[in-house]
């Protein structure tokens, strides 16, 4: 048996009809949405569940209180409760209305700044990021973690924006960065293309940070617990 059976050419007339239907469709004005999001292709492939309605028009200036340094964690009970419900919903709809991997339940790292708290959950098969603000909870996750290459001798890996979003008026832009670091690393500072210096939160070998712009992460400076710089390196650009 030939694994690549011949596929006949599409009928040229039907192809043109499809093309014009497509062009008509995309020329329609998009419906008004208060938020948009982007995710990298790798996350798309790994099956992504994103439900973000975090900042609504009732909270126009949600990024105003953002700080480059994360805040010390406060009462996380309500955060874990809200995020837990979202994970439960993921499991309830697993394989039907969503990806077919189980929601992870172990908390790796928590990042708090401005009005938003982010919790990174990890499990044997998957990882999920829960984002919580006073107006909503969203998640972004991926499966196939078992295929992830071990960190080995590297000090960091997989630094990439995992969520970026902004509302239709261009306000409240934000980028979330996730990644992995060696246990030898005590501090991570991200430089972005638009000049921000963001100190990430580290926990259990995971890194978490966000900043109020769509500026791409450019460089990372890794230090140990005593402040000795271990490495300064560009953050590889992911072509999607």
């Amino acid at each position: 048996m030939n694994i690549t059976p011949d596929i006949p050419q599409l009928d040229p007339m039907r192809l043109q009809v499809r093309k014009h239907a497509l062009l008509n469709e995309i020329s329609q004005k998009p419906s008004r949405r208060w938020w948009r999001f982007t995710v990298p292709a790798t996350a798309l492939v790994a099956a992504v569940a994103v439900t973000l309605v975090l900042w609504t028009p009732t909270n126009q200036d949600a990024s105003a209180a953002w700080t480059a340094e994360p805040r010390a964690p406060g009462d996380l009970g309500p955060v874990f409760a809200d995020c837990g419900r979202t994970l439960d919903r993921h499991d309830a709809e697993r394989g039907v209305n969503g990806p077919d991997w189980p929601a992870p339940r172990d908390v790796a790292v928590v990042d708090q700044r401005a009005d938003m708290t982010m919790v990174q959950y990890i499990g044997p098969q998957s990882e999920m990021l829960c984002l919580r603000t006073p107006t909503g909870v969203g998640t972004n996750g991926r499966g196939n973690l078992q295929d992830q290459e071990p960190l080995g001798d590297r000090l960091f890996a997989d630094f990439a924006p995992s969520v970026g979003m902004y509302d239709v008026d261009g306000r409240n832009a934000m980028t979330v960065l996730t990644g992995r670091v060696s246990r030898a690393v005590g501090k991570v500072v991200i430089s972005t293309e638009d000049g921000l210096q963001v100190t990430a939160t580290i926990g259990n070998g995971r890194v978490l940070a966000w900043w109020p712009s769509l500026g791409k992460p450019k460089d990372v400076r890794l230090s140990d617990e005593t402040g000795v710089v271990l490495q300064t390196a560009p953050i590889p650009v992911k072509h999607r």
Partner: peptide, 22 residues
């Protein structure tokens, strides 16, 4: 520019179709 997207559609629709059919 949607016309450019139309050109990309004409260029790659057959390959995508073959993959989807298989």
């Amino acid at each position: 520019v949607s016309e450019a997207f139309g050109m990309l559609f004409e260029r790659h629709a057959q390959a995508v179709f073959a993959y989807c059919l298989r």
